[in-house]
Design a protein around this nucleic acid. Structure first.
Length: 217
DNA sequence: TAGTGGCA
DNA sequence: TTTT
């Protein structure tokens, strides 16, 4: 599938956009296994349902989340962390499907981060009006690995800021099949998602789905 | 340590 | 509309 991706990028069906040093947007990234991707998503969320986590401050997050992979990102009153077990079931998170892993590794490689080995995939489901406010991904042990963020379904505006919350943000429109990869110098950049506008997408209905791949350990 | 929320 |  790696070859399919590069072939598609070369054929001009998709293209790269350099955001800044260490940050790349892959536009209309090849999703050659889209049916497989969504079937896997279905399987994962039937075992580990999407749920609204609570922030340490006690606020319910508007975006519904689940995970797959060796560990999953969690938030509750006691903080942010990664855990091998889903607190909802007490069982391990569903394994990361091969199609997910392949997609993440292909995207990372296309963005200049060869050898990416994610052990966590956070699944975010945005309904119209939901958002993710500005934050840094810094709960991972290995900050040398990039973040790979796959957009599926209805479009969104991604905010890509600087090293401090107050830094100005780039507004990056993201559509189905777009992938943002950031690492290296850009690894700790603040980022977020503006409230999702009401829209329909054939693959997801009114939702936006985001897959965030990380190496947590 | 506080924090990816929501309001004024 | 942007900021805290």
């Amino acid at each position: 599938m790696t070859l399919d991706l590069f072939a598609e990028l070369e054929q001009g069906m998709g293209w790269r956009e350099e955001l800044d040093a260490g940050a790349v947007v892959l536009r209309r990234f090849a999703l050659p296994r889209q049916a497989e991707l969504f079937a896997a998503l279905e399987r994962i969320t039937s075992q580990a349902p999407l749920r609204h986590m609570v922030t340490p401050g006690g606020f319910r997050m508007s975006v519904a989340m689940s995970n797959c992979g060796a560990c999953g990102w969690l938030s509750d009153r006691s903080g942010y962390r990664y855990d091998a077990l889903d607190p909802h079931s007490g069982k391990p998170w569903p394994p990361m499907p091969q199609a997910f892993l392949q997609l993440a590794q292909d995207a990372a490689a296309a963005a200049g981060f060869a050898g990416f080995a994610p052990d966590a995939c956070l699944i975010n489901r945005y309904e119209p009006g939901t958002r993710l406010s500005l934050h840094q991904d810094k709960d991972e042990c290995d900050l040398s690995a990039p973040i790979v963020s796959v957009s599926l379904g209805v479009p969104a505006t991604f905010l890509f800021g600087g090293g401090q919350r107050a830094d100005k943000c780039r507004r990056v429109p993201l559509a189905h099949g777009d992938v943002v990869v950031w690492g290296g110098l850009a690894r700790l950049r603040y980022h977020g998602v503006l409230p999702i506008k009401a829209a329909q997408h054939p693959a997801t209905g009114s939702h936006r789905i985001n897959l965030t791949f990380r190496k947590a350990r």
